[in-house]
Design a protein around this nucleic acid. Structure first.
Length: 468
RNA sequence: GGUGGGAUGGCGAAGUGGCUAACGCAGCGGUCUGCAAAACCGCGAUUCACGGGUUCGAAUCCCGUUCCCACCGCCA
């Protein structure tokens, strides 16, 4: 069974068939860096990062490109508010974005082009569109002539006529038609600008993605992704630009993740109901947030509330505890029952099969997570029955591999070395227990807890871990 | 208005014709333990928004109803 993905354009599941066998070029619309990222942005990052991990695991070589919009109205507005150069605002929030992404276990993209680095290429693309009659300069701006592109609306399933009824031309715009959108915006005083054949100005938002994706991945992308709210007009406009200019399909597969809502309403900066990742990371682990974001299928809406996040935090704890307990068993040279070892192997096979089937079916992370916890449960049963060191080690590897696929990693199961002080207290407590000095043992346990360590008494001896 | 997507136990969330409706969290009872912790065992939706219908059989298909959300200016 090969990977099937839901394609927004054809509105059905499609097998992933890249242009070049074994290689996948993915372009995902990244953030406009004018603010901290919120949970909705995080969902997109985590979903597409998980896609990358799954593709890589199944043997694809990928080129994953995510752009950074670092020149735009909102950045300029913020810069004016704070009386700073726009460049500095962009720089600051780009750094914050990268930090948040790292905490969520999101790997850096292979390329992270920034709009301001591709101005000449954008100008060239706009010039091409003008030459071909798809764009026109007017009043210092350049607009795309939407009516010239008959397929306009194919991605979002809207007809030009339906759109036209609601559209209006704003004062100061010299559009031929209300639906036309800006490719180049003439500079207003005090705004960052670049020279162009049409005068000083800056690029429109949509043109950057057409330009940079083509520069890095060619005119046809294997997968183009983003949030569902970008389908119209952003991605529709990208298609119009790219297909008009290059005469090739812009993307072979369109993936869009669902929105995150807060109390049932879309979380959006413009609605002012955002919860920033930065703020949540003060109180929840990146793993918990990540598991929460993957707990529902990526195309369904996901309602954010802290209670759900707490539940995910608890689930992560269970996973980690099991891996640690298995590691503990693995570090003790115990000979297990052959039957248990066999059961462990079956458990691992089931896990791999189930996860693979789940992710192949439109990246169904919710089912993959369920399979992971099925395996956690089975592993705990085996541990209870007396799991040998070798089988325990195999289970650790299998659980960690699966968790890593979901981006939960870095908390390696191997028992970490104890600080000398902690080790001494653990030994002292073991002595006290041997002498049945319970109150002393309990006092030492409390002391360890204050130092941030949990000690559990098992048939194999004291099991120590960092307090959750 | 146009176009999409939803409604499943206390909460989150799988399941799209047929094993006892996954999995996680929370709760309750039990086992293990000096006490714990972790874990395990057991209990919990006679029912899948509501009303009809198709079928030997439906949460899953059809019709109708109610409610909710997203996109149609910016937004992941």
């Amino acid at each position: 069974m090969a990977l099937q993905l839901y394609d927004t354009l054809t509105r059905r599941m499609q097998p992933l068939v890249p242009q070049h066998a074994g290689k996948v070029g993915i372009y995902v619309c990244g953030p406009t860096v004018y603010n901290w990222i919120h949970v909705g942005n995080a969902r997109q990052l985590v979903v597409f990062d998980t896609l990358r991990r799954w593709l890589a695991r199944t043997g694809y070589t990928l080129t994953y490109v995510q752009n950074i919009t670092d020149v735009d109205d909102k950045i300029i507005a913020r810069a004016q508010e704070e009386n700073l150069p726009a460049e500095e605002v962009a720089e600051r929030f780009l750094a914050a974005f990268l930090e948040d992404a790292a905490h969520l276990g999101v790997r850096p993209p292979d390329a992270m082009p920034r709009a301001t680095q591709y101005i000449p290429q954008m100008i060239a693309l706009i010039a091409t569109l003008i030459e071909k009659g798809y764009a026109y300069a007017a009043g210092g701006d350049v607009y795309y002539r939407v009516r010239r592109f008959p397929e306009y609306g194919k991605l979002s399933g809207t007809r030009i006529e339906a759109l036209a009824s609601g559209a209006r031309i704003l004062p100061g715009e010299a559009k031929e038609n209300p639906l036309d959108f800006a490719l180049w915006k003439g500079a207003k005083p005090g705004e960052p600008s670049w020279e162009s054949p049409w005068g000083a100005g800056r690029p429109g938002w949509h043109i950057e993605c057409s330009t940079m994706s083509t520069a890095l991945l060619g005119p046809t992308l294997d997968i183009h992704g983003g949030g569902m709210d970008l389908i119209f007009p952003h991605h529709e406009n990208e298609i119009a630009q790219s297909e008009a200019a290059f005469g090739a399909p812009f993307a072979r597969l369109w993936m869009h993740n669902g929105m995150v809502t807060l109390s049932g309403e879309k979380m959006a900066k413009s609605l002012g109901n955002v919860r920033t990742v930065h703020e949540l990371l003060q109180r929840f682990s990146g793993d918990a947030l990540r598991l929460f974001l993957l707990s529902a299928h990526y195309r369904t809406p996901l309602d954010f509330d802290e209670h759900s996040l707490e539940q995910s935090q608890a689930a992560v704890r269970r996973l980690k505890t099991t891996v640690q307990n298995l590691s503990f068993a693995a570090s003790h040279a115990v000979q297990g029952e052959p039957a248990v070892a066999e059961a462990a192997k079956r458990c691992i096979r089931r896990l791999e099969t189930a996860v693979s089937a789940a992710l192949d079916e439109d990246l169904h992370t919710a089912r993959a997570i369920a399979a992971l916890f099925d395996a956690v449960h089975e592993a705990n049963q085996l541990l209870q029955e007396g799991c040998g060191a070798e089988a325990a080690a195999q289970l650790v590897t299998a659980l960690e591999d699966t968790a890593a696929l979901l981006g939960l990693e870095g908390w390696a199961g191997q028992t970490e070395a104890l600080p000398a002080e902690v080790d001494a207290l653990v030994r002292e407590r073991a002595q006290a227990r041997m002498k049945r000095e319970w109150s002393k043992a309990d006092a030492l346990r409390s002391r360890l807890s204050e130092l941030g360590w949990t000690v559990e008494d098992t048939p194999l001896g004291p099991r120590v871990r960092r307090r959750a």
